[in-house]
Measured scan of single mutants.
Amino acid sequence: DAEELIELVERALKEGREIILLGVRITSEEAGKWFIEWIRRFL
């Protein structure tokens, strides 16, 4: 579910982890915020 995915992304970014989803590397909080917004819009 989308909320679970958002929580995972937020937690990983807070822990300083690198996330790779759909071939996109997300390493900064700014990118994470963009990704979370995208999830909310399309899922």
Rank of each mutant, 00 (worst) to 15 (best):
E3W: 15
E18V: 13
I39E: 00
I26P: 03
L22I: 08
D1Q: 13
A2G: 06
E18G: 08
I26F: 06
L13A: 03
K33Y: 09
W38C: 14
R17I: 12
T27W: 13
A31H: 10
G32V: 12
I26G: 01
E18F: 12
V9Q: 00
V9C: 14
K14N: 07
E3G: 10
E10P: 00
R11T: 09
R41W: 15
F42Y: 10
R41D: 02
A2S: 06
R41S: 10
R41A: 09
L5W: 10
E37V: 11
R40W: 12
L8Q: 07
S28R: 06
A2V: 14
L5D: 02
E15C: 15
W34A: 14
L5G: 01
E7Q: 11
I20S: 03
K33V: 08
E29P: 14
T27P: 03
E15H: 08
R40C: 14
S28T: 10
W38L: 06
L21Y: 04
T27H: 11
V9A: 03
K14L: 11
T27C: 15
W38G: 00
E4N: 11
W34H: 08
L13M: 10
E37F: 10
E3V: 11
L21H: 01
A31K: 09
I26Q: 04
A12H: 05
V24R: 02
L22C: 15
G32A: 14
W34S: 06
I6N: 03
E4I: 14
F42H: 06
E29K: 12
W34F: 06
E29Q: 13
I19S: 00
R41P: 01
K33M: 08
K14E: 08
K33I: 08
E3F: 14
I36G: 01
I19E: 00
E3P: 07
I19Q: 01
E29V: 11
V24Y: 08
V24W: 11
F42R: 04
E7N: 13
R11I: 09
E15P: 04
V9R: 01
G32R: 10
T27Q: 07
A2M: 13
E10G: 04
R25Y: 09
W34M: 09
V9W: 03
D1R: 15
R11P: 02
K14Q: 08
A31L: 14
L22D: 00
I39C: 07
R17T: 07
I6F: 07
I39T: 00
G23P: 04
G23M: 13
F42I: 10
V9I: 11
L13K: 02
L8E: 05
F35V: 09
L5F: 09
W38Q: 02
W38E: 00
R25M: 10
E37M: 12
L8M: 10
D1E: 09
W38D: 00
L43T: 04
L5E: 00
A31F: 12
I26V: 05
A31M: 14
R11W: 10
E10H: 11
R40A: 06
I36D: 02
E3L: 13
E7R: 15
L43P: 00
I19L: 08
E3C: 15
V24H: 06
E30H: 08
L13C: 15
E3K: 11
K33Q: 09
I6V: 07
L5A: 02
R17S: 04
E7G: 13
I39K: 00
E15Y: 10
R40F: 12
G16W: 14
G16E: 03
L5C: 11
A12K: 02
V24S: 01
A12F: 06
A2N: 06
E37D: 08
L22R: 05
E29A: 13
F42N: 04
K14A: 10
L5V: 04
F35H: 01
V9L: 08
S28Y: 07
S28W: 13
T27Y: 11
I6L: 09
L8K: 07
L13H: 02
S28C: 12
W38S: 00
A31Q: 14
R17F: 09
E18H: 12
G16V: 11
W34V: 05
E37L: 13
S28Q: 03
G23Q: 09
K14V: 07
K14P: 04
E10M: 12
E37T: 07
E18Q: 11
E30G: 09
I39G: 00
V9N: 01
W38V: 02
T27G: 10
G23K: 08
I26D: 02
E18W: 11
E10Q: 12
R25K: 08
R25T: 08
E30N: 08
R11S: 05
D1P: 13
R40I: 11
